[in-house]
């Protein structure tokens, strides 16, 4: 097939942790990443950190993107990062989208979240960043 000479697609997990029930933003990002040639595993709403990490491992993704609006980011993101570490998968980079105050964003970056996008971020920027932080295939 013609695609065979190309590099394998980047696999990315998109999920929405937390209890708030709408995922429009996450879906729009998922589609943009697909249109950029990535394979997006869309896990959907109300995902617990445990579910997110198990999905990421089973799907062997190169990247995880989490969308969050509920304000619980300071609990959820560190939990996901810790779980990834304990499952020896800390190499999978994590990015975040949602409404996250600057102060929290700084803390999360320090903890290891690779990129954080506010509501104003453009899809081009998200795609470009996703591509550059995705775990390189070995």
């Amino acid at each position: 097939m013609a695609r065979e000479s190309r590099r394998p697609p980047i696999r990315v997990l998109i999920a929405k942790p937390g209890l708030d029930g709408h995922d429009r933003g996450a879906k729009i990002v998922a589609r943009a990443l697909r249109d950029a040639g990535m394979e997006v595993i869309y896990a959907g709403l109300r995902q617990t950190p445990e579910e997110i990490v198990e999905s990421a491992l089973e799907e062997d993704v190169d990247l995880i993107g989490l969308s969050i609006l509920s304000g619980a980011h300071m609990v959820l993101f560190p939990r996901v990062l810790n779980l990834l570490r304990s499952r020896k998968a800390a190499r999978i980079p994590l990015f975040a989208g949602g409404i996250i105050p600057d102060e929290d964003a700084r803390k999360l970056r320090k903890l290891g979240v690779k990129a954080i996008f506010g509501p104003g971020a453009s899809l081009e920027e998200i795609v470009r960043t996703a591509r550059s932080i995705a775990r390189p295939r070995t």
């Binding site: 697609p9 990443l33 697909r34 950029a36 040639g37 394979e39 997006v40 869309y42 959907g44």
Partner: peptide
């Protein structure tokens, strides 16, 4: 997979 981009949204997990 999209015939245009080669990408895909895989949604069965939902």
């Amino acid at each position: 997979s999209s015939p245009f981009s080669g990408g895909s949204v895989l949604g069965d997990r939902i």
